[in-house]
Design a protein around this nucleic acid. Structure first.
Length: 518
RNA sequence: GCGGGUGUAGCUCAGUGGUAGAGCGUCAGCCUUCCAAGCUGAAUGUCGAGGGUUCGAAUCCCUUCGCCCGCUCCA
């Protein structure tokens, strides 16, 4: 951790989130429920602003109107797909298999292993008899240690997976770092997908899953979007919505929640252009997070190593933020993955519906001037962002402690994301100031109320009202004072500096408009 | 799932067996012409929940839940 960014206290951030109504524990009056968090009034608006910014910059005006690597405007359309999909969707996507890794625990060492990752030294030939079998993890210290023991016991040894050993024989297995035999539990299933039942009878035949990602809904509707709109590859389909994962250990405030919201774009392109688009999206997504306030060295773009990649991926990058609880490490905000044609191919195989795209602009030129066309399976670039993680990163980044100020805790939100956009205060609650404040408040609320809260408050001292706005992250406060009544000017107080300037009261709307970028 | 810590007002916390507390915040009033100022007053708790021991439990014991840290996990 560098000197420039002193560690922020997660406890203090969480306390402020509760105190000012950003985040509440879900079902708190019943004792809470592990892995679930609710947003209070300010948090709900903050997250909506984040979601709206994504929607605007990814779908309605993708990449701020910038041209893609093909030299044309980036084109995207929205989609809203359901949390519950046909169960076969998750078989095709690989989630049913992948979300069911059986695990074994060691009763002695308390270690937990993925069942299919554990190997065992057994005699090269014949039965071990009453002698133990020596379990180990490949490429861990246990490998050499157990091999030594096994060779002493059996002479020649061979390696077999633990999955090939009948559970009845586990009593003979010596765990990787155990002293006694028989400490491994039988393999247990960990279902990372939430299960539910469709229909009132709720039998096993009615089983369905709550989606672990929004992406599959997009792939499943790819053909409908192509057939019913005038989109042409390359283009993207965006979808925001709630997903569910039965995390083994929900941890770190809202960072690893069991219910969370994603904003995913699946961008479809010709295989030959896919690398260019991958790089394009990777770089834009990094720039986008920076543009909404995650500036500085706490945000990084990290390209995955080859051995980190999924078997189908030809490249993945993460936008990562250094949270107080990950520092000096980073936590993932968004993954930008080159998924190749894996998903569409999988769904084509499982559904038996052709999902290939017929590209009329490709292929050899015909005498009449048109082209012959080319049929291919589009490749897909997937920028998949976590909105709750984004909101959390924004809150952590915004949280600033300045003991030199009378109100030491300040949320320095980017104006575009700030849940409270502006506040209007009469300096004192008399002499006609409240009436002027009321009129200005009405004007601002009518013009900017759709972007967030506009506040007004005449009670208590002006310092206290400014302080409250600092903690809530309101970027500007407009104050009506004695001078307003004579020359029609107000003061603008800047949240981050506490500095003030004086502007004409009829210029306030324009000022806010410009600062909010709306 | 394991181990450690923790849970008292909105927030931070004190309270080790004998009437439930403080600071800050919140609210009301007064005051106040620019930064949590001052004065007066007020509200707020099944002491995380359940059970037990005891004449009596926030306090001791058991169970359970949440949160934090470490392990484990993270397709």
């Amino acid at each position: 951790m560098s000197e420039a960014t002193p560690a922020k206290s997660m406890d203090e951030i969480m306390a402020l989130c509760k105190r000012r109504g950003f985040v509440y524990q879900a079902s708190e009056i019943y004792g809470g429920i592990n892995g679930f968090w609710d947003y209070g009034p300010l948090g709900a608006q903050l997250k909506k602003n984040l979601r709206d910014a994504w929607w605007q910059d990814m779908i309605m005006n993708p990449c701020w109107g910038r041209k893609g690597p093909n030299g044309e405007r980036v084109r995207c359309v929205p989609l809203e797909t359901r949390i519950i999909q046909h169960p076969k969707v998750w078989e095709a996507s690989g989630h049913v298999g992948g979300f069911n890794d059986p695990m074994v625990d060691c009763r002695e060492t308390k270690a937990r292993y993925r069942f299919d990752h554990v190997s065992v030294f057994v005699p090269a030939s014949g039965d071990a008899g009453e002698r133990p079998l020596f379990a180990f993890m490949k490429d861990s210290p246990s490998e050499a240690k157990q091999q030594k023991k096994a060779e002493r016991a059996f002479g020649a040894v061979k390696v077999v997976p633990l999955t090939s050993i009948p559970v009845e024989q586990f009593a003979k297995v010596l765990g990787p770092d155990a002293e006694k035999v028989g400490t491994l539990t039988e393999p247990r299933q960990f279902n990372l997908m939430f299960k539910t039942y469709i229909g009132a009878t709720a039998t096993e035949d009615d089983k369905a899953y709550l989606r672990p990602e929004t992406a599959q809904g997009i792939f499943v509707q790819f053909k409908n979007v192509v057939d019913t709109t005038r989109v042409k590859v390359p283009f993207g389909i965006g979808n925001t919505g709630t997903s569910f994962r039965n995390e083994v250990t929900p941890r770190n405030f809202t960072f690893r929640s069991r219910e969370f919201e994603q904003a995913e774009l699946e961008f479809f392109c010709h295989p030959s252009e896919s690398q260019d688009w991958y790089k394009f999206w990777r770089d834009f997504r990094m720039e986008w997070w920076q543009s909404i306030g995650l500036k500085g060295e706490n945000l990084i773009l990290r390209e995955h190593e080859k051995d980190e990649l999924s078997h189908y991926s030809q490249g993945t990058s993460d936008v990562e933020y250094r949270f107080p609880f990950t520092a000096p490490g980073f936590g993932e905000l968004e993954g930008i993955a080159h998924r190749g044609c894996f998903d569409l191919t999988q769904h084509q195989e499982h559904s038996k519906v052709k999902l290939e795209y017929f590209d009329q602009e490709r292929g050899e030129k015909l005498p009449n001037g048109s082209t012959k066309g080319e049929r291919y399976m589009p490749h897909c670039i997937e920028p998949a962002a976590g909105l709750d993680r984004g909101a959390l990163a924004i809150m952590c980044e915004a949280y600033t402690k300045d003991p030199s100020r009378p109100s030491p805790e300040i949320m320095k939100f980017h104006p575009r994301i700030a849940p409270i956009k502006a506040a209007v205060f009469p300096l004192v609650n008399k002499d006609g100031m409240p009436e002027v404040a009321e009129r200005l408040y009405d004007e601002l609320n009518a013009k900017f109320g759709r972007t967030g809260f506009i506040e007004t408050d005449a009670k208590q001292s002006i310092g206290k009202r400014y302080a409250r706005m600092d903690e809530a992250g309101c970027p500007f406060c407009f104050t009506i004072d004695g001078e307003t009544l004579t020359n029609q000017t107000v003061t603008v107080r800047d949240r981050d500096t506490g500095g003030q300037e004086r502007i004409a009261i009829n210029a306030v709307s324009e000022y806010v408009k410009k600062k909010l970028g709306v």
